[in-house]
Design a protein around this nucleic acid. Structure first.
Length: 822
DNA sequence: TTAGGGTTAG
């Protein structure tokens, strides 16, 4: 390195001698002096002089010593422009090393380009070094390219060059390429095998990992690095026990992990939820003589908190503090949040007491906000509300003392002792505090309290946040308080918040629930303008509500207007409209909409077809219903159980049991399992035509197939048997129904009573009448049930059976003449 | 912050 350069200086350029030789360190020193300062402060004449003496060694030294990478790069470019200077592989590598350290892959790429285009001769070692730099920045293809073009750089790669390349390939898991290069190598060494191991670990190829490990072991090449690769890989795969096994094996061999690996393992286990194991590893780390720091403690404490073992987290927190490490705001928030979330307000409070004084005012308020949030998550919104109120009281107290000694830093007990927290005098609630509690109140269905708090918030000169306003509006809308939600919308705008898609959709919901289509259309226009999209399910709600109110045409117009505005309703919304028309018997209109929608926008699905089939069945137009069924099969839409149920019910109601049974067997053929509704329709159908035995056979078949009867099925059977005069069989099923905890309706009981009377089973009839008594109030005087009831009471009153005369209905029917009700 | 809204039996 004792190179000397001769520099011929211009005349009159003091303080430098006119002619002298300069050593490399001195040259480097002068260059460093210039390039460490901004360009305007450099002496161009002097630089020019220095330029003529440049040597690669000096350049390398300057690059190494310049503090800033930008200056280094600037120097490098300057050097490249100097006539007569040629970079060596070492100056290139010095620059490459800097660029990879500061993560500048694109500059690194240009550097490679230059090296290759200038065909800079490289030694195998230099090429290996360069490949490492390039690979570390993820430029794997470039690394391979360099290797493959070694010849152009007058380089014959040696074992080291190969190892550098396969390490790069291994790190990114390019196993096949590693294997290929490995096979090309003549005498792979320890490093080559280690790179292979790394490759298999990164690719998760466990069998290969063990194979290579055995190979390394057999050659006596297993070292700490090899173990570390394995341990980190097993940690990543969540194989905690294996990691411990390996670490113990290392200990047995007198090896130990380095601190970085320990940290990786502790972090890894904690993040994977094995916090106990993380702590065990942490203990090993401390035994190995390494200390924990805030980050490591934080990740462990967080692990405990996430595992709902807050008390362990707290113990570790204490240990950390005892070892002299102070928590940061993030850890404090996590601890306080977890303690509150677990309901441990006392410890949350102590933590705040211990650290609160050290925190800045902003941090302190954010800690209080964490408490508010934690209380709400614990389900104690009331306590959070009280705490917030105590914080608000601080402001009032400050105002009252304005001219007094407000610098006094005393604390006073929170206004409400149940909040358990001492409120530091300086703490005032901010927008976040109000938002947290207001959202909590909304969530807890305490809307009116939230509204009062909102007004108080405004008096406290706070304005909350957007989420809070949205929640308030959403809550108001969900309980139908539309006017108030409009007021809130105005207030939110005045406070500078811009309503979002969520805000508008909350209002849209309310309008749909009310069936107010014209206002909803206005809102949709506005939303379109603002680029907001309506939640399509509310459109369906609008259609349903309008249909319920008998305004099917309005529902259709609403959908049409939506299209005009530019929002296309989906098939579900159209289906709801079609269903509305079917239910008022407007089958032809319904069919037209069904056809229009099919031809213009959607392929109707099974449910849409079912709706039309249902419409036709209920209108008694079974042939039309069947035509729709065939049409859907032709379209390739598979009928569902509901489809067949609708057809079966239609045929049963028309007394066509043959057709209904044919449908049932089709269901079995097409493996659409019959449901309890299928059997109920059939049982009802058989009873209606007097075929009670067939009905009972189906009843058994249903249960054999694992289909359990429900209340409707029982009612249908009992009703049918009564109608056919089989009171005793009906009675046994009625009892079974009650045993299975299905409550019979009043109609069924009354029917049962009359049926028993017909059979002169007066004792049972009386029992039943008593059962009906609690339901009497719900029977209207103009109903069939009422007439049947009167008839039953009259029949019974003719016999000497004690009746409770107190019941108004029974009183009213007592003494009624038979021809009055017949 | 929001994913589920339309069809069947007594």
């Amino acid at each position: 390195m004792a190179l000397r350069a001769t520099i011929i200086l211009r005349k009159n350029s003091p303080p430098f001698p006119s002619l002298f030789t300069i050593s490399t360190p001195s040259l480097a020193h002068h260059l460093l002096h210039h390039f460490s300062r901004p360009p305007p402060l450099r002496d161009p004449a002097h630089l020019q002089t220095l330029a003529s003496a440049l040597t690669p060694d000096a350049v390398e030294a300057v690059l190494r010593d310049l503090q800033s990478w930008r200056s280094a790069h600037e120097f490098f470019l300057w050097v490249s422009l100097q006539p007569g200077f040629r970079h060596s592989c070492y100056t290139y590598n010095a620059m490459a090393s800097i660029l990879s350290r500061v993560r500048q892959p694109s500059l690194l790429r240009s550097l490679l380009h230059e090296i290759l285009s200038r065909k800079c001769p490289m030694t195998p070692g230099a090429l290996g070094f360069l490949i490492r730099c390039v690979g570390s920045q993820g430029l794997v293809d470039e690394a391979e390219f360099l290797f493959d073009h070694a010849e152009e750089l007058s380089c014959v790669p040696n074992l080291y060059t190969y190892n550098c390349l396969i390490e790069v390939l291994a790190k990114v898991g390019r196993v096949r390429m590693v294997e290929l290069r490995f096979r090309e190598m003549k005498n792979p060494d320890k490093y080559s095998f280690t790179a292979m191991l790394q490759a298999y670990c990164n690719a998760g190829m466990l069998d290969h990992v063990w194979r290579v490990f055995k190979e390394l072991h057999g050659r006596g090449w297993v070292d700490e690095h090899v173990f570390t690769i394995l341990v980190v890989a097993f940690c990543r795969w969540g194989k905690v026990d294996k990691v411990f096994e390996l670490v113990e094996a290392m200990e047995g061999l007198g090896m130990r992990l380095n601190v970085k690996t320990f940290r990786v393992l502790v972090h890894g286990f904690a993040k994977q939820g094995s916090v106990e194991k993380a702590v065990e590893m942490f203990k090993k780390m401390k035994l190995a003589g390494f200390d924990g720091d805030l980050r490591l403690y934080s990740v462990l404490i967080e692990g405990f908190c996430a595992a709902k073992a807050v008390e362990n987290g707290l113990a570790l927190y204490r240990e950390m503090k005892n070892s002299g490490i102070c928590p940061d705001n993030r850890l404090m928030k996590m601890m306080i949040s977890s303690l509150c979330g677990a309901g441990d307000m006392a410890n949350a409070n102590s933590l705040l007491e211990e650290e609160g004084d050290k925190a800045s005012l902003a941090s302190l308020v954010s800690l209080y906000n964490t408490i508010l949030d934690g209380m709400i998550r614990f389900g104690d919104v009331e306590r959070a509300h009280l705490l917030l109120r105590s914080m608000m009281a601080n402001r009032n107290s400050l105002v009252a003392q304005k001219d007094g000694d407000e610098c006094e830093s005393r604390e006073f007990e929170g206004a409400v002792s149940e909040s358990l927290f001492r409120i530091k005098k300086s703490v005032l609630p901010n927008d976040e505090s109000f938002s947290i509690v207001l959202c909590g109140l909304c969530e807890g269905d305490k809307l009116d309290k939230a509204l009062v708090l909102f007004d108080d918030m405004i008096s406290n000169a706070c304005k909350g946040n957007l989420l809070m306003h949205n929640n308030l509006i959403n809550k108001l809308c969900s309980v139908g308080r539309l006017e108030e939600s409009y007021n809130m919308l105005n207030k939110m705008r005045e406070l500078g918040f811009v309503p979002t898609e969520f805000t508008n959709n909350s209002i849209f919901y309310c309008l749909c629930k009310r069936g107010d289509s014209s206002t909803a259309i206005d809102l949709l226009k506005e939303m379109r303008h603002q680029g907001h999209v309506p939640w399509i399910k509310y459109c369906t709600l609008m259609v349903q509500q309008l249909s319920k109110q008998g305004k099917v045409d309005e529902a259709c117009s609403f959908l049409e207007e939506m299209v005009q505005i530019g929002f296309l309703p989906d098939m579900i919304a159209y289906s709801a409209a079609i269903d509305g028309m079917c239910r008022i018997g407007e089958m032809d209109k319904a069919l037209k909409v069904f056809r229009d929608v099919s031809s213009s926008c959607y392929l109707p699905d099974v449910v849409a077809h079912n709706i039309v089939i249902n419409g036709f069945c209920k209108a008694g137009r079974l042939a039309d219903a069947e035509a729709i069924l065939n049409e859907m099969i032709d379209k390739g839409i598979v009928p569902s159980t509901v489809t067949y149920n609708l057809m079966i019910d239609g045929w049963c109601k028309a007394g066509r049991m043959d057709k209904a049974l044919a449908c049932l067997s089709k269901m079995n053929d097409e493996s659409e399992p019959p449901s309890v509704a299928t059997y109920t329709s059939l049982i009802d159908g058989f009873c209606s035509v007097g075929r009670t035995e067939d009905a009972l056979q189906l009843w058994n078949e249903m249960q054999e197939k694992g289909c359990l009867p429900n209340k409707i099925a029982y009612s249908a059977l009992v009703y049918g048997l009564c109608k056919c005069g089989r009171a005793d069989v009906a009675l046994s099923y009625f009892h079974e129904m009650k045993e299975r905890k299905f409550e019979a309706d009043a109609s069924l009981c009354i029917l049962m009573v009359n049926c028993l009377l017909l059979k002169r089973n007066l004792v049972s009839a009386t029992e039943f009448l008593k059962q009906v008594r609690p339901m009497v109030e719900s029977i209207t005087t103009d109903s069939k049930d009422y007439r049947l009831m009167r008839k039953a009471v009259y029949e019974l009153s003719k016999d000497v059976i004690s009746l409770d005369k107190k019941t108004p209905l029974i009183q009213s029917v007592s003494g009624v003449k038979e021809d009055n009700y017949n």
